[in-house]
Deep mutational scan, measured.
Amino acid sequence: MTEYKLVVVGAGGVGKSALTIQLIQNHFVDEYDPTIEDSYRKQVVIDGETCLLDILDTAGQEEYSAMRDQYMRTGEGFLCVFAINNTKSFEDIHHYREQIKRVKDSEDVPMVLVGNKCDLPSRTVDTKQAQDLARSYGIPFIETSAKTRQGVDDAFYTLVREIRKHKEKMSKDGKKKKKKSKTKCVIM
């Protein structure tokens, strides 16, 4: 069974824990209790493949930012979460993405942009803004509501699919490099 290491990042209060708990335990946590770091595991079937999701729910508070490099190193894919009623959390996505790329030393890291709290009427981040940002990053965008469960499975499952595509691409690139290195030079 394939294991996928997913990391949920975003500013404090955007609903990272609520999304994760909704996926794992099928219930909505409405009281806000700032996370330092929590880890969850769940076995699911995605596109006919049974897999184990190892999900790291991270601290959004700035005082825990020193811990970010460590979990970013171990993560295979990242859910970059903002709240649709919090423009600052949307603007912060850029910083999370840049930090992930720096730590992973790669421009090509599996990510999904997630606009959470889409059940709320007080939207300050337009869907088109988020779609445009995701398009500019070359990553999928999904709106979710941890409260109603809308888009929750889709967000995590899409990230797994992005990781699969990335692994497939990397193995193809690896095979191309191996083929090239088999060419021999004969000096007579």
Rank of each mutant, 00 (worst) to 15 (best):
A18D: 06
L19R: 01
K42S: 10
F28G: 01
I36D: 00
L23P: 02
A18S: 10
D33H: 03
T58N: 03
T20S: 10
T58C: 06
T50E: 11
A59S: 14
L19K: 11
G15Q: 00
I24M: 15
C51Y: 14
D30N: 10
T20D: 05
L52P: 14
T58I: 03
D38S: 04
V45H: 12
L53N: 11
D57N: 02
Q22G: 11
I24P: 01
Y4V: 12
P34A: 07
A59N: 04
P34V: 04
G13H: 13
S17L: 00
V8Q: 03
T2W: 08
G15N: 00
I46T: 11
I46Y: 12
R41K: 14
Q22V: 05
G15H: 00
V7L: 05
Y64M: 05
D33S: 02
L6S: 04
V29F: 14
V9S: 06
V45Q: 14
Q25S: 15
E62C: 07
H27V: 15
D57F: 02
G13Q: 11
S17I: 03
C51F: 13
A11K: 06
K16W: 00
V44W: 09
Y40E: 03
E49L: 06
T2F: 12
L23E: 15
G15A: 02
L6Y: 05
P34I: 03
V9H: 04
S17K: 00
H27K: 14
E37A: 15
E3Q: 12
L56T: 15
G10N: 00
L56N: 12
G48P: 09
V29N: 06
G15L: 00
K16M: 05
Q43D: 12
L56V: 15
G13S: 11
V14G: 11
V14K: 07
K5C: 06
G60S: 05
S17A: 00
K5M: 03
T58A: 07
V44F: 08
E31G: 06
H27P: 03
T2H: 12
F28A: 03
V7F: 06
Q22C: 06
Y32M: 03
L56S: 11
A59G: 13
D38C: 03
I21P: 00
T58E: 09
E62Y: 06
L53E: 06
R41D: 04
V14I: 13
Y64F: 08
D38W: 00
L53I: 14
G15P: 02
E63M: 06
F28E: 01
E3T: 14
D47T: 08
E3F: 07
K5Q: 07
E37M: 15
N26P: 06
V8E: 02
A59T: 08
H27G: 14
E63S: 06
Q61M: 11
L6T: 07
L53A: 12
G12S: 12
L52W: 13
I46R: 10
D57L: 02
Q22W: 08
T2P: 13
T35K: 01
T2I: 10
Y4N: 10
Y40N: 00
E49V: 11
E62I: 07
L53F: 12
L52Y: 15
I55T: 12
D54F: 06
D54E: 15
L6P: 06
I36Q: 05
I46Q: 09
A18W: 03
I21R: 04
I55P: 03
A59I: 03
